[in-house]
Structure formats: C-alpha cells, structure tokens
C-alpha cells in the first residue's frame, strides 16, 4: 500500500493489559520452574525469558516492528530496575527478619556492661553513634556549605577555587580507613599513642562528609536561578545578604538532602571508628571521655568475636544493624519533613 493511503485501522495496538498478561505468564513459568526444582536464580531467568517470549512475538504480529522494539526496550528497562532493587529488598528482608528477634525493650534500655552471653542491649552504641555522627555533622555542614558558597558564589573559575575544587575531588576518593588513620595520627601527636576518643571518630567521619556536602551544596547553588540573585541586587541588597537571605533559602531543601546523604554515608562507617573510638561496653556520652561504642563497630565485634554460645551475640549484631537502618530512615524522614516545611513552596 502506498504511504498516502494508510488508515488508522492498519495500526492496531495490543490491549493495555497485554504487558501484565505477559508478566503473569512469566511469573507462572518461573513458579513452575521453581516447582520443578531448579535454583531461584535460574527460575527468575526462566520467568524473564517467558515474559519476553509471550509478549514480543505477539506484539510483532499485531503491532509491527516499531512497537515490538519499544516493548522490548520497556521490558529491558523494567528488568534492569528489578535487578537494581532486588538486592535492596533482599537486604531489608534479611536485616529485618534476623534483627527482629532481639529488637526488644532491653535492646534500647541496656548496655553491654557486665553482660556475658544472653541479654544486654545497644544503648551505649546508639548513644555513641548519635554523638559521633552528630559531632561530625556539626563540623562538616558549616565547613562544607561555606566551601561550596565560596566555590560557586565568589571564587568562580579563579585559581584558588580550582585548587579547592581539585582537593575536594581528591577527598571524595579517600578510603575511609585512611581518614581513620589520619584522625588517629593527629590525636596521637597530641595525646600520645593508644588514645581513643569519640571526637577522634567525629574528625575521621567529617573528613568523609565534607566533600559530599561541598559537592551536593555546590550543585544546589548552581540550580538557584541567576535572576533571583539579580532581583536582590536590583533592590540594593549586598551580595552576602543576597546569599544568606535569597540563595540559601531557595536551595535549602536540596542542601538538606545532600547533608542527609552525607550522614547516611558515614553513619554506618566501621573501619575508621574501629581505630579511633575503640570499643567499650558501657554508655559514654562524652566525646572527650575515652572510648566510645557505636552501632557499626558493635555489630562487627559481636559478629566477628562471638562468645559461647554464639547465638545471642549474632542476634545482637543483627538487632544493631536493624537499629542503624532505622536511624538512617528516621533521619531521612525528618529531612524530608524539614525540606517540605522550609523549602520552596509552590502555592
């Protein structure tokens, strides 16, 4: 038929439930394979293949090659998404199912002081994690945000800005254990070797946080439209006040998100804290008062050096991991509330 004489009746489309039907067929095929006794991974592959086989030839026959290709790409993208999310769901499931055993009141009300075998809690580790991460955040946010303001608002393209930008990139790549060793070496110079303090952990973590805060804040400042700055300048507002009262509030939600990402990145750090804050069994909320436990190190120690019997130690490790996960989630939730409350509102 010539190009000019086509009608829309020649261009049929599969019903909207077609992909779901194909997906259902895929799931069914996967379950059958599982019943037949193959491994889980193989069953998933069988299901994916079945979905493709169910949908693509059907689409090719009814809709033609353009839509068939579109469906193939859609399936690939969906598959990639599932592949990316699967480990996350698996991780959440594992942590929750194993951690829930010891996720009780005693976990939060007791420390490990004098505990051998069963019982005990992670109160000391929660306190330590909050104090160390809080201190690190307190140090990193002003330094990071102000560095980003310098880089984007003042130093644009200058030699100093380029140098700072380069070193921030280098800092992003520092292995966390190196940050820990640096903090240890720094404090050992002052207090002598063998020193263990909560604040040392905070220093190590802030080394890891600062570059993340700088990069994300810089990105957010870049998004603030230039015409807002001009509007303020046009009112005769000085530059620094424009940044404080117009630019930062506009970028606030994004900056908070960046800070949260940085916190989430360091709150589970183990290696640098192992060498800087050490391990201890009782509650210590004073960052300058000797050893301080934290959740990641606690989970690591319980898991790697369990006593006899092993089970209570392993259960405590998982419960500590679950607590850590919940802390990160709660922080994220708070950050979202904060940025929704103070960020740019639409109407």
């Amino acid at each position: 038929m010539s190009a000019s004489s086509w009608t829309w009746e020649d261009h049929r489309v599969l019903p909207t439930w077609a992909p779901w039907a194909a997906g259902g067929a895929g799931v069914a095929a996967g379950l059958l394979a599982l019943l037949a006794g193959v491994a889980l991974v193989v069953a998933v592959l069988v299901g994916a293949a079945a979905t493709v086989v169910a949908l693509i030839p059907w689409s090719l026959a009814v809709e033609g090659s353009r839509r068939a290709r579109d469906r193939m790409v859609t399936l690939t993208v969906t598959g990639a998404f599932a592949l990316a999310v699967a480990p996350l769901i698996s991780l959440l499931y594992t942590v929750v199912s194993r951690g829930i055993d010891r996720f009780d009141g005693a976990l939060f009300s007791e420390s490990m002081r004098g505990v051998v075998g069963e019982g005990g809690g992670v109160q000391h580790a929660i306190v330590g994690t909050l104090v160390i991460t809080g201190l690190a955040t307190l140090a990193s946010v002003p330094i990071g945000v102000m560095t980003a303001i310098y880089l984007h608002e003042y130093g644009r393209g200058g030699r100093l800005a380029k140098a700072i930008s380069f070193f921030v990139d280098v800092m992003t790549g520092i292995p966390s254990i190196v940050a820990g060793l640096f903090a240890y070496a720094l404090f050992a110079l002052i207090f002598g070797p063998g020193v263990r303090l909560g604040v040392m952990g905070a220093v190590a973590l802030s080394l890891l946080m600062i570059p993340i805060v700088v990069r994300s804040t810089e990105e957010m400042l870049r998004v603030v439209p230039h015409h807002l700055r001009e509007a303020a300048y046009g009112l005769g507002v000085p530059k620094w006040l424009t940044i404080v009262k117009v630019v930062l509030p506009t970028a606030f939600a994004g900056i908070v998100t960046g800070v949260m990402l940085a916190i989430a990145r360091v709150v589970g750090e183990t290696a640098p804290l192992l060498i800087t804050t050490g391990a201890v069994t009782s509650v210590n909320a004073n960052p300058f008062g000797g050893r301080m436990e934290n959740l990641a190190v606690f989970a690591y120690n319980q898991y790697s050096n369990p006593g006899v019997p092993r089970d209570p130690y392993i259960a405590r490790a998982w419960a500590a991991a679950l607590t850590l996960l919940l802390i990160v989630m709660v922080l994220n939730l708070v950050a979202r509330l904060v940025s929704a409350r103070f960020g740019v509102r639409q109407r």
């Binding site: 807002l228 001009e230 509007a231 303020a232 009112l235 005769g236 509030p249 740019v344 509102r345």
Partner: peptide, 14 residues
C-alpha cells in the same frame, strides 16, 4: 537609588 524590574517576573520563591 536605581531599582530594576526584569523581563521574567522573579519573585523570591521562598
């Protein structure tokens, strides 16, 4: 002393 109004309306969004 010399104020300005711009092409794109630019109220402060916050």
């Amino acid at each position: 002393q010399i104020g300005m109004v711009f092409q794109q309306p630019n109220p402060f969004p916050t």
